[in-house]
């Protein structure tokens, strides 16, 4: 019932924060020059960079081309990560045997940075989208596994006992107890996983990308063009925020019992 007004406040405070930050930025770089323009671009420089990339293009493409290409890669990587990671994590959470069997490989592979997979991804899959998706997958699948695992483990034992004593079948157990019980943490995992997709994008697009936001950021880094880096960061943040909002909506829809 307070949902609507809370949302309003949230947006208002958020907007006020961002506005305050923008004012601070302008003051720091332009009006007072606390920060030399060499260290951080001024709003005006960022505006010019934005105009350049929207109208003329930069790093072999215009902003929307980079944006769409990256969204595509992230969606591929996310889908691949979720479809492997969530079932695997839940299985490991449920079955101690599966955990003991899978854990060694998982724990050995998990800490390896996505960037470290680049050499192997190139020799295995070449310079196309597949190699980029592989690199993104490696990063995104870890949080999906860990949180799904933790989600199943966090289910109160009495719920499982109760279901058992009521004679629940295996399928019912999974559908009625495990999935709903694990869902809050599974969604935490999905959020982190989606975030990992975006943060690994640069690494993925180091593999001979022609367009993409990661490629854009890399190129802007090579050009020492801070204003364009900021434009790229904001674009990534917007795209990531948009996808997270979609995920939050899905979360709410799938857990109607958690209204707060």
């Amino acid at each position: 019932m307070r949902e609507g007004s809370d949302r309003g406040i949230r947006i208002a405070v958020g907007a006020a924060t961002l506005a305050a930050l923008a004012a601070l930025w302008t003051a720091a770089t332009t009006l007072e020059q606390w920060i030399a323009p060499v260290y951080f671009p001024t709003p005006q420089e960022v505006g010019n960079a934005l105009r350049q990339i929207v109208l003329q293009g930069y790093a072999d493409g215009r902003l929307h081309e980079h944006f769409l290409q990256s969204c595509k890669l992230v969606l591929y990587g996310f889908a691949a990560a979720v479809s492997v990671g969530v079932p695997l994590g839940m299985l490991m959470g449920w079955s101690r045997r599966a955990e003991a069997l899978v854990n060694p490989a998982f724990l050995l592979l998990r800490p390896i940075p996505p960037l470290a997979w680049i050499p192997l991804a190139i020799v295995w899959l070449g310079l196309g989208d597949a190699a980029k998706v592989l690199v993104i997958w490696f990063a995104a699948f870890v949080p999906a596994v860990i949180n799904s695992y933790a989600g199943v483990r966090s289910i109160e034992p009495y719920l499982i006992e109760a279901a058992r004593s009521l004679g629940a079948t295996r399928g019912m157990m999974v559908r009625e107890v495990l999935i709903p019980g694990a869902l809050p943490l599974v969604f935490t995992g999905l959020r982190l996983s989606l975030q990992a997709c975006w943060t690994t994008l640069i690494a993925g697009e180091l593999i001979g990308a022609i367009t993409g936001l990661g490629h854009l950021l890399y190129q802007a880094g090579l050009d020492l063009y801070p204003a364009m880096i900021v434009v790229g960061m904001v674009a990534v943040a917007l795209a990531g925020g948009l996808m997270t909002a979609l995920l939050a909506w899905a979360e709410k829809r799938s857990m109607p019992w958690r209204t707060s």
Binding site: G14, I202, A203, P226, I229
Partner: peptide, 26 residues
């Protein structure tokens, strides 16, 4: 929560290595 979340939500999608140029600059 209301003040930090928007900032945080924006920043956390930015890849750590995107900060490399700034890290080198700063």
């Amino acid at each position: 929560d209301r003040i930090v979340t928007p900032l945080f939500d924006a920043l956390r999608f930015v890849a750590p290595i995107a900060w490399v140029p700034f890290a080198a600059l700063w």
